[in-house]
Amino acid sequence: MVVLDGVSKSFNGHKAVDNVSLYAREKEITVLLGTSGCGKTTTLKMVNRLIEPDSGTIRINGKNIKDANPDTLRRAIGFVMQHAGLFPHYTVARNIAA
Rank of each mutant, 00 (worst) to 15 (best):
M1K: 12
D5P: 05
G6E: 03
V7Y: 00
V7M: 02
S8D: 05
S8R: 01
K9A: 00
S10A: 10
N12T: 11
N12G: 15
N12V: 09
G13N: 04
G13M: 01
H14A: 14
A16C: 09
D18L: 06
N19G: 11
V20C: 03
E26L: 11
E26K: 15
K27Q: 15
K27M: 13
K27G: 12
E28D: 09
G34H: 07
T35S: 14
T35W: 06
S36A: 08
S36V: 07
G37V: 04
C38L: 08
G39K: 01
G39W: 04
G39V: 03
K40V: 04
K40F: 11
T41S: 12
T42Y: 00
T42G: 04
T42C: 06
M46K: 03
R49K: 13
R49T: 07
E52W: 07
E52S: 09
P53C: 10
P53A: 13
P53G: 05
P53I: 05
D54N: 09
G56I: 00
T57F: 03
T57D: 12
I58A: 00
I58P: 00
R59I: 05
I60N: 02
N61V: 07
G62A: 03
K63M: 09
K63E: 13
N64D: 12
I65Q: 00
K66G: 07
K66N: 13
P70M: 05
T72N: 15
R74L: 03
I77M: 07
G78P: 03
F79D: 11
M81N: 13
M81Q: 15
M81V: 15
M81S: 13
Q82C: 07
H83N: 14
A84H: 15
L86M: 14
F87G: 10
H89K: 12
V92L: 10
V92P: 04
A93F: 14
N95Y: 01
N95I: 01
I96V: 13
A97H: 08
A98M: 14
